[in-house]
Structure formats: C-alpha cells, structure tokens
Amino acid sequence: MNELPNANDPARTPAIQIDGLLHRYKTHQALNGVSFTVQRQSIHGFVGPNGAGKTTTLKVLATLLPPQHGLVRVFGYDVKRQRTEVRRKIGFMPDHFSMYRQMTVFEYLDFFGAAYGLPQDRRDRIIGDILDLTDMSGRKNDLIHGLSRGMQQRVSLARVLVHDPDLLLLDEPASGLDPRARIELMDILEELRRMGKTIFISSHILSELATLCDSCTILDRGSVKYSGPMQDLISASDGPQAQYHLTLRAAHQAAATALAGLPGMDQVIPPLPNQPRYTLLFDRAQLSPNAILQAALAAGAEIVSFSEAQRHLNEAFMDLTEPGVRT
C-alpha cells in the first residue's frame, strides 16, 4: 500500500484519498479494493450501476461505516482514527430526506449550526448567506413539512453547508427533482466550487455530471473501472488517432476533397443531408488541428464550429460497466 500524505502538508493533500478499500456485508462483497483520489476544489462525479458500492463508499467517507480494510483519508485525516476531524471537514447529504419536518427552515439550520458548535452571531451570518445561496431566504420561516421536494432538497443542501465544510459528499442530490430544480441545483454546485469547496457527487444523471464535473470515478461491482479527468473519459479520440467535428454553413465538396488529401488524414466522414458536419479522423503525429482549419478556409468553406469529438458519458459508462444486475 502506498504511503499517503497526511494533514501536515495541507496544500498538497488531496481532498479524498482512498487506497485498497474493501467492505464486505454479510452476504456479499460490496467494495473490492477501491482506490482513487479527488483533488481539492474540484467537482468529482461518482457513478455506477445500482449495487456498485457507491453508497457504501460514501458512508465510509462520511464516517458512518468504518472501513474494514484499506486506507481512507479526507484532507489527510484518517476516517477511522480521526473521525471528529473528518466530520468537521465534511458535509454529507444522504440520498433520502433526512429532516425534522416540524421545524421551520431557519430552526432546522439553526439547530445544526448549534450542534456543530457555532456561536449565535456566526450562525446568523452563515445561515443568512446559505439561504441567499440556495434562494430560500423568502421561505426561512416556513415549516419544512409544507415545502416542495425541490425546496426540501435545497434545505438539505443548506444544512450540509451550515458549518462551512470544505468537502461536500452528495448522494443522488438531484434524484426526484424536476428539470428546472435540477438545473438550479447544478448552478448552486458550480457556485460552491467557485467558493473553493470540493464536491463529491454521486448521481445517475450522467448528462449533467459530464458538464459539471472536473473528474469522475466509475464504479462497477465494487471495483473502480475508471478514475481520472472527465475530459479523458468523454474524449472520443483513441491513442494517436484524433477525432474532430467540423461543422460548415453548408456542405462543401471542395473542402471535403482538400481535407481528405491532407497528409495524415485517415478518413473524412461526409455529413448527413441536413446536417453539414464532417467527422475527421487523423493521425495526431502527422497532422495538427490548425492545419485542418487552414485547409478548410483555403478551400473556401464557411466554418461554423471545429471541436474535438466527445462521447456522451452514457456511452463511456456503458462501455466500462457490465450488463445485468449484480448477484
């Protein structure tokens, strides 16, 4: 097992470092040597099919489950031996509503603020800020019982923020929300990243994760299938061969011919009738994107866009995970 950095070197310490995590329930092995790292001030997506072990991993990170084997550190603190320090650093939002519905929104946040030991004046300031952030200021005196699901989710997120944690562990935060509420939630998460928080988010809504996350881990049957930058995962380019999309104002045969004749161009896939987008496959070593652009312009084509082709996260997910239900 690698020697992991500790909390004494805060600038270099990753937000999360998991190495060789094993966890077994009575009947099955939930985690089978999980290892990955999450950098500070990033949004890290955590995806996997049902039963992959996501919630178990989250519970270990949230100090609810002690790791049976392996090393798990949060900002350098060991989740098993330094639980109190870890709990001060994290805010855990479970996948179910965990709320005192008889309280008002303010009472609920005030309660958790007090439970985390924040003095009243600091609580007032922080609660005001997070109510503004979550757009719940106007509902602070409403009973949680009467709030819609989307609003309860916002209150849940506000509760996670009340002690100003550095790491947010969010388990399916967007489940059951309507599209508007989901988009608004993602905006809040973007804002939190700008504020310097590290966000570890488990979700099934892959399209939103692809745009939101800097990095991601795909877990399947208790094992890590991929962990690294999101860009690398969704990039369609494969090794030395690059794949780009070139969209023109209209189909342009001369440009297509010129591009096909470039040295290192492997294939120019012609566009569909109503969609003048060419897909270009070429060797990175012989041909650069700049040269392609220049050739297209020289042929008189009017360029609308030129970008590296990306797979949808769904495709990557399907490629990396096995079909069927875990038994």
Partner: peptide
C-alpha cells in the same frame, strides 16, 4: 421515523 439518524451521526460528536 424521521430518517435523521445519519444527520446526527455525522456531527463531530
């Protein structure tokens, strides 16, 4: 019943 045990369990206590 309220499902709030995990909220209490993650307090630094």
């Amino acid at each position: 019943r309220e499902g709030t045990l995990d909220g209490l369990a993650t307090l630094p206590l």
